[in-house]
Design a protein around this nucleic acid. Structure first.
Lengths: 149, 149
DNA sequence: TTGCCCACCTGAAGCGCTTGAGGTCAAGCG
DNA sequence: CGCTTGACCTCAAGCGCTTCAGGTGGGCAA
């Protein structure tokens, strides 16, 4: 998993991917856009070797990304972490904003599920030739559509 | 909103956008990728004019898109609608698959919300210099992280 | 030694849109 | 009548990745 290289542990991109949950392609992409600073390379092969500090940081990024946080917010997160000043309030706000975002998404998801479930029911009614059921569902779909926005 | 053109109502792209909830850019994009077949144009200006049939169809597409349905599924939906055969079962399956997709998304959202809410609490504790609170939250975050995947 | 496979590399294209730049057409106004 | 305004047009680039094509280095078996 890790190889010893002098006295520093170094991690391959494959292992970094397993540890963080970010794909290898995403790890390269994040480096390219400067979200993670240049990763040292193995002299002879040119392969990336992630050092201890980077491993911890990227692991955290993996969690944030897994919540759907934007790249910009991840940038801010890293900036707040690095800064010498006390950024606790900014951090709290960053996470609170993201909680609200998720909350809204959840609510929209419920509306969507209802609409799709009704559509499934509609076609199930048609499948069994149930014209009555069909005409009961149609107005419900119309109502559900309103909330879809 | 609509103009009369012979005996057929025709709708501008702006109005089509308002009706369907799809942006003008998306309407052009859907046409480009062949999801909606070529839209007739106004002779002199070259502007798109959506006819009655297209309006109804695109309105429906707008709802499906609003639920997060994939372009491929929308293609299938249109194909099933058009077909002469009885596609009720295929339709039902298509919608049921999408209900499941949303269901899974909702569940993942709950995990994400919990993780982010804990992170917000952590920084709130740090903000008020509450080391006790902080050490209570840290293990909860570790636990919540497990579910994130 | 040769050959092979694996992990890794880079660069480009694709996805589903959105955003922006730059240009045309028709109508209304001074 | 020219001028502005607005709605529309096309083409190109950007976003956050993913996927693919084509190539290199290193280790191991035959």
């Amino acid at each position: 998993m890790t190889t010893t290289d002098g006295d520093r542990a170094s991690v391959s991109i494959q292992d970094m991917s397993k540890i963080s949950g970010l794909s290898e392609a995403t790890l390269r992409y994040y480096e390219k856009i400067g979200l993670i600073g240049p990763v040292p390379r193995d002299e002879s092969s040119g392969h990336r070797r992630y050092g201890g500090h980077a491993v911890v940081m990227i692991e955290a990024l993996g969690c944030l990304r897994a919540t759907g946080m934007s790249v910009q917010d991840m940038r801010d997160y890293l900036r707040f972490l690095d800064g010498r000043e006390d950024n606790a309030a900014l951090m709290r706000e960053l996470f609170e904003r993201n909680v609200s975002r998720i909350q809204e998404e959840i609510e929209r998801m419920h509306v969507r599920r209802r609409y799709l479930a009704l559509k499934a029911e509609l076609w199930a009614a048609r499948e069994r030739g149930d014209a009555d059921g069909e005409s009961r569902i149609v107005p419900e779909i119309a109502a559900a559509r309103e909330g879809l926005r």
